[in-house]
Amino acid sequence: MTEIPPLVVPAVRIEDIITIMDVMGDVNPIHVDEDLVRELGLRGPVNQGPANLAYIVNMLIAWAGSPESIRHLNLRFQSISCPGDRLEARGNVVRLIHGDDGPVAHCAVALVREGGEVILSGTADVSVTTTMAEVVEAAHG
């Protein structure tokens, strides 16, 4: 399998959560209310799912070279990330699909918290150049 270079988020920051709340008009107190999250048995304020999704996207863009390369994402949010968490976006190419619009890499992706907890996992379909496709095919034998 061809590994996609991982991308590290050094630390989730509460100020970024608040910015995304503002951008989204998100009033869900689960993102900032320490008392509520404790009551709900969560380990901290909850980083937004779309932010976790964005870390995966950042990795894919860095690899494929363009935001327009991303064709499809299917992501299951298995756990939460919280302020202070160090995260790593990971991925690898499972197979290549040769479509009418050129080669597409079907990838397994995941966002993992330091210590190994999987925050989200799923699949991504990413358009790749012919050269990248040849490299992937060579690696897959």
């Binding site: 988020v9 989204m24 779309p50 932010a51 999704l53």
Partner: peptide, 30 residues
């Protein structure tokens, strides 16, 4: 708004003339 959002998801160096794909979720949702 786009610049604030990409900065908040550790993509401050995003330098493309189309929206970050996270807006595939954010735009319909918002």
């Amino acid at each position: 708004t786009h610049a604030r959002a990409v900065g908040a998801v550790h993509a401050g160096d995003y330098n493309f003339n189309v929206a970050h794909p996270m807006f595939g979720h954010l735009a319909p949702h918002c």
